[in-house]
């Protein structure tokens, strides 16, 4: 009886210590990346290459999702708003939900699934096939050569992707609201412009997407760097990337929104 309780407790303790250790290691890894990121600006083509892989190749999924998200928002919003006789406010609804929340959050979730997993798998396999060790042998820091360019590429791509998401989503909402449903185009845009504030809404959305960019890219890089050098280890690391990034994005979103709304 006593030994069973003790083993349960020690199991909990082991998990807590393990996750705390990983958390601390990831923070240290973050500072390593910051210290070694000089290389990624001196040899900018490394970073540009990674922007291509993380940003440009994510464009299609981001834009298509944005278009559909905007259209669905307009349909659903119209359905509710017309009950209160204010269907002209559809533009406000679509624009505010996209710029404040859905743009940054959905982009980050898609980014974690599309680019984060690729980063984790790539770096995990580099470790498994000892390419990183080979770099260290040649006195090339793998953090500076492999990790830092990917980090800055992710941080740079995310706000651009989120802005594109919001813009395309608004266009999708416009297409449903104005030509399809028949809301007045002038009311659609003018109510939107009257209610969407540059500083309060758009800049806050960009701030959110930068923070999500740091979080998602960092989680993907750390999981890849930390993955056990086996096929199973890499597959688990990839899963953890998606799960942890999604949770981090949603949690951070709540914290930041509560600060932005109150302030």
């Amino acid at each position: 009886m006593f030994s069973a309780v003790a083993s349960v407790l020690s199991g909990i303790g082991h998990r807590v210590i393990d996750s705390l250790w990983r958390f601390g290691a990831s923070i240290r890894f973050f500072f390593y990346v910051l210290i070694y990121s000089g290389e990624s600006f001196r040899r900018l083509h490394l970073t540009i290459r990674e922007i291509y892989f993380t940003g440009v190749l994510s464009l299609i999924i981001i834009l298509v999702s944005a278009f559909f998200v905007g259209m669905v928002l307009a349909l659903q919003g119209y359905n509710t708003l017309q009950r209160y006789g204010s269907s002209e406010a559809i533009g406000v609804l679509v624009a505010l939900s996209l710029v404040r929340e859905l743009g940054p959050v959905v982009t980050a979730l898609l980014f974690a699934g599309r680019a984060g997993t690729a980063i984790t798998a790539e770096i995990g396999l580099m470790r498994a096939t000892e390419q990183l060790s080979a770099m260290e042998m040649m006195a090339v820091s793998p953090v500076a050569r492999v990790v830092a360019p990917r980090f800055w590429a992710g941080v740079f791509s995310m706000p651009l992707l989120a802005a594109l998401f919001s813009m395309v989503g608004v266009l999708g909402g416009y297409l449903v609201a104005v030509p399809l449903i028949g809301v007045d185009a002038g009311a659609f845009w003018s109510q939107m412009q009257a209610s969407v504030d540059f500083r309060e809404d758009i800049v806050n959305g960009v701030i959110k997407s930068v923070v999500f960019g740091v979080a998602c890219t960092m989680i993907a890089l750390f999981e890849g760097f930390d993955a056990p050098p086996t096929a199973e280890g890499v597959s688990r690391a990839t899963t953890r990337t998606v799960v942890n990034s999604s949770l981090a994005v949603l949690g951070l979103d709540f914290v930041m929104t509560s600060f932005m709304i109150v302030a």
Binding site: I51, Y52, G55, V56, L59, A95, V99, S157, P159, L160, L161, A163, L164, S166, M167, V168, V170, W189, M192, Q193, A194, V196, D197, F198, D201, I202, V206
Partner: peptide, 19 residues
């Protein structure tokens, strides 16, 4: 990509927002 992203930001500021 960068040009489109910057254009989207400008578009948001000018067309959607009240900048």
């Amino acid at each position: 990509f960068v040009a489109a992203g910057a254009a989207a930001l400008f578009g948001l500021a000018l067309k959607v927002g009240n900048f």
